[in-house]
Design a protein around this nucleic acid. Structure first.
Lengths: 123, 123
DNA sequence: TGTTCATATGAATAAATGTTCATATATAAT
DNA sequence: ATTATATATGAACATTTATTCATATGAACA
């Protein structure tokens, strides 16, 4: 994912609508926000992680429970929980040997619901 | 702790909280919805595509404009527009040699705004 | 102490993905 | 027709990523 900064564009510039490009450029959010946004959605862009988050919408669960629910290995779940943890989407508490995970964010559900709305309207 | 041994996965099942797993399993959306949702977010999970969509929030634009705006090759933009087209997030119209792209969805902006809200509250 | 068990993690592997390069397609103009 | 130009697309390449396997960590308990 490299972004070289060469100078002018690829098309011959009499086709580029300079005013529009300039105006849109003004209205674009900061580069960093766009990057962070893509990073957030990247976390949501995996079936396993989506399933884990939906599971945690319903209840706090231990790693073992989640693995059982999704019929996947403990290791796979643990790796993905780490991703969710790093994105600050889940939190956890330890109780003896067992680690319980739960949601650490209020927006996820809303974002997912919006996404489902979009999907359902396509169908 | 009484426990049947179903032949579920990885951890020894006396730790799995069967009732919780069963209940959560009931509440999970259909497998297909979860898959589609992840696919949708996968589309949002790339900086270039996020930028393109934000650009189209502001105005209808031709491929050349977008390439100029983002300082990227026409080919790269065209490839990504194809992904957005397949996800039915953008539509286009042809006018002579120029193809103009615009948004084909009302939810994207809302989803993105939710995402930005999330990000900003982390900061 | 040593054992057991739930979870975490590093390394390896396979699969997916974004960009570039070269080229094809489609439209307009000469 | 021929040329020019805006866009699309296939192949190649590099990079990222999800899972597995083996093993480490950390807590309870005999």
């Amino acid at each position: 994912m490299s972004n070289r900064n060469t100078e002018l564009p690829s098309c011959s510039s009499n086709v580029v609508h300079e005013e529009i490009v300039a105006r849109v450029n003004e209205e674009m959010p900061r580069e960093e926000s766009l990057y962070d946004l893509a990073e957030l959605f990247k976390v949501f862009g995996d079936t396993t992680r989506v399933k884990i988050l939906y599971a945690l919408f319903a209840a706090e669960m231990c790693v073992c429970d989640i693995a059982a629910l999704l019929n996947m290995s403990q290791s796979a779940i643990s790796h993905q929980l780490r991703v969710l943890k790093q994105a600050r989407l889940v939190k956890f508490r330890r109780q003896g040997k067992v680690v319980y995970y739960s949601l650490d964010d209020d927006h996820v559900k809303q974002i997912f619901d919006q996404g489902l709305t979009h999907i359902n309207e396509l169908a």
